[in-house]
Simulated assay, not measured.
Amino acid sequence: MNKNQSVISDGFELNYCIKGQGTPILVVGSSVYYSRLFSENLYKKFQFIFLDHRGFVAPPRALTPEDYTLDKVLDDIEIARQSLNLEDFIILGHSGHAFMALEYARKYPRHVQKVILLNSAPTNSEERQQQSFSFFNETAELERKKQFEKDIALLESDIQKDPTRRFVHMCIRMGAHSFYDYTFNAAYMWDGVYTNLPIIDHLWGEAFGKLDLIQSLKNVNKQVFLGLGRYDYLVSPVSLWDSVDDTYTNVTKVIFEQSGHNPMFEEPQLFDSTLFEWINKR
Rank of each mutant, 00 (worst) to 15 (best):
N280S: 05
N4H: 04
V244T: 13
G227I: 13
K222D: 09
R166E: 06
A105K: 14
D212I: 07
D181F: 01
E156R: 12
T139W: 01
G192D: 03
N4L: 06
I18M: 11
P263N: 05
N250H: 10
N4A: 05
R106K: 15
V73Q: 02
F99K: 00
R110F: 02
H177L: 13
K253L: 12
E267H: 01
G192H: 03
Y233P: 07
V115K: 10
E266Y: 00
V28M: 05
L213N: 04
M174G: 06
L37Y: 00
K107W: 08
R110L: 09
L211F: 04
Q21N: 07
K45I: 03
Q215N: 10
A105Y: 10
S35E: 10
A153D: 05
D158T: 03
L102N: 12
L84H: 14
D191V: 00
I77K: 08
S9W: 02
L92I: 08
V235C: 15
P237S: 13
V251P: 15
M100Q: 15
G93W: 11
A207D: 00
K218W: 04
S30L: 05
L92Q: 03
M100G: 02
R230A: 11
E126A: 14
K218G: 07
P109G: 15
W241A: 15
I79P: 01
R36A: 07
D67C: 13
Q129R: 13
M174D: 04
H53C: 13
Q113A: 15
D71A: 15
N185R: 01
N119W: 00
L217I: 07
R144N: 04
R61M: 12
S120K: 11
F50R: 11
L14M: 02
Q160Y: 00
Y68M: 14
Y248Q: 08
M264R: 00
R106F: 05
D272C: 13
S9G: 06
Q131L: 15
V254K: 12
S120V: 11
P263M: 10
H177C: 02
A101N: 14
D181N: 12
I49K: 04
E126F: 11
N137K: 08
L197R: 04
H177R: 03
K218S: 11
F208N: 01
R173W: 04
E143W: 03
L37P: 01
S239V: 13
L213T: 07
P263C: 07
S259G: 09
D71E: 15
C171H: 03
S83Y: 11
K222S: 14
V27H: 03
P263H: 06
E143D: 12
D67S: 14
L217W: 02
Q258M: 02
N2M: 08
Q47V: 04
I152W: 00
T139S: 15
I49D: 05
Q223A: 14
Q269S: 13
L14N: 05
S31C: 07
S120W: 01
V57R: 07
P237G: 14
P24Y: 03
S178N: 10
E13V: 11
L240M: 13
I172N: 03
T274R: 03
H97Y: 15
S31A: 06
